[in-house]
Design a protein around this nucleic acid. Sequence first.
DNA 1: TGTCCGAATTAAAACGTTATAATTCCTCTA
DNA 2: TAGAGGAATTATAACGTTTTAATTCGGACA
Lengths: 342, 342
Amino acid sequence: MTDDSTLSALHGHGEKPTLRTLAQATGFSVATVSRALANDPRIAAKTRATVAEMAKRLGYIPDRAARRLRTGRTQVISLLLNTEHEFLGFTHEFLTGITETLAGTGYSVTVVPDSPGEDRIGPVRTILRNNLADGLLFTRTEAFDPRVRLLMEADFPFVSHGRTEFTAPHPWVDYDNETFARQAVAYLVAKGRSRICMVLPGDQFTFTQHLRYGFVSAAREAGIAHDIVPGVTLDSPTAAIAAALAEARRGPNPPDGYVCVGEVTALVALAALADTGAVHGVDADIVAKRASPIFDNIRPRIGTVFEDLRATGRAMAEMLLRRMAGEPPERLNRLFQPDPPR
Amino acid sequence: MTDDSTLSALHGHGEKPTLRTLAQATGFSVATVSRALANDPRIAAKTRATVAEMAKRLGYIPDRAARRLRTGRTQVISLLLNTEHEFLGFTHEFLTGITETLAGTGYSVTVVPDSPGEDRIGPVRTILRNNLADGLLFTRTEAFDPRVRLLMEADFPFVSHGRTEFTAPHPWVDYDNETFARQAVAYLVAKGRSRICMVLPGDQFTFTQHLRYGFVSAAREAGIAHDIVPGVTLDSPTAAIAAALAEARRGPNPPDGYVCVGEVTALVALAALADTGAVHGVDADIVAKRASPIFDNIRPRIGTVFEDLRATGRAMAEMLLRRMAGEPPERLNRLFQPDPPR
DNA sequence: TGTCCGAATTAAAACGTTATAATTCCTCTA
DNA sequence: TAGAGGAATTATAACGTTTTAATTCGGACA
């Protein structure tokens, strides 16, 4: 019961403790120890307590590789990280929310690069095929996103950042971009603006449609001139966006209101104003979504709406845990509401 | 030689192929197949070719869990992610550089949150003790960083972002912050500035000392007044930094030059100028390090130095691979040189 | 013709779990 | 007192690798 190896384990000098160590130390079999640690009710309560105490004393931690090999569960959650574009601070806040939530759950988070120009479905295929994770998180969801389709077919747990237009339900977390756009337009209207414009993300993303719809219908309802800046998207090089905005300012009726989804675009718009001698708050107003605290320090102050991406990350991670625990997808979704611009 | 299971495997309908599948398909034993795939010279060249071809045909991929269990190698690299503070875009760029470099090497990248106020060594202990990774990357290195000490003792591969003052060599990647500070001072001197100030990161970080030394000695050599803004660090809440900078402007001799290490600080400084009616380029100049392209669009334009954090991430990942391959630490270090401010 | 050698291959064990299918052993009933 | 029933525990196999220690099998040599 207390042979050499047990003793050395007790004194912490020995090797990493395994179930066998615990079995030797307690006098039970490996099978019983395993069950006891899993709190199997078929094991006597007293035995469970004994084993638990010894496990704690020896600092036993189950071996991930062994468990993974045996059960097929990886204890890994993968995040597809867009390597090209980000709103400022997006990755940091989002990832922090995810890792914060998953810390202590036994899941580890792996980051897989996802180059947008290239095959978006390849990394997902690899993960499915090689069983590299138990769940998946990703962003920049498209209306008929092939990743969503594949994952639904494979019945693999995931949460998308952004909705799709598939009829079958799946878990998602999204931000109410239509309402954001409506509120942004209302903000500009309240400032007396009547010729507003907006730079949109690429057409393939679902949230682009929400933004467009909110922007266009709110502007129509207000009866003001409105324009989607042509030829560029949020992901265009900033120089191209700058050129497009400068071009717009040279026309006979330059815009007097800007709805900006990203912070960089807002800065570009501000620069476009400054570079053409226009004064923010006098000749035009800007309202933007922000993910970082940076705009508190931008002068002139523009109207901003804060999107809490850390909370988004947390929500997605929590939802994925619930999905992996077997909850059906129907009710697993959450739409974050924007505060009005300030 | 081509029984049912082989056939189904060949047609891709079957289960995930394992060494046993390959063994059945080729007629060799599992042991031979394993060796052949490892290119063991003791296996006949012809056999190796046969096995390799079959592996490719069936899309065989070794099981990570099994390999990890058997060899003890995890095929995982962990990154300690600071959850509290970041320069804008730091996390995104840095992480992208790392994942880019590691894609295709068979290593996966896990992110572990590292809360700075708390125990910095705990996550490292956990990783070592539970064998959760084969290598470690981290940032915000301190002069006598306890993580570095522990990892050196354990002879565990790692690369720190930032140097230490330990005598024993270890792999690191750093940015020449002393030179950055000197160049920044020179830039302000060239603008005719004579009362410059700087907000530093916390004293515990090694790079803070480099910044301070570069700033102070360059200012002394130039014979101009210089001041470290007291009571706040880069990690202070921006409101506190803003208050400290505003306070400094109220004095009889407000600063006319600002050296900013982070982008947020630079914006705060700009705001402080604007809020006190001072004009950038006339009453004062600002020079800042930037990690994102954002400053191209800030008006007024301030002097900036670009720190390429994606390249930093790549360099650290590459260095870690070399360290894990057994290269000694002596020559594994790299100091990125700043370009002069523009 | 028997023996030895080396090249090529393989059987088997092990890594640390979990799950299936026994096996104890005690108590209760007829 | 035999047998059934059930609670508690355990032996064993398996997950897919790698590696140690055989084993096979020609051919070279005496």
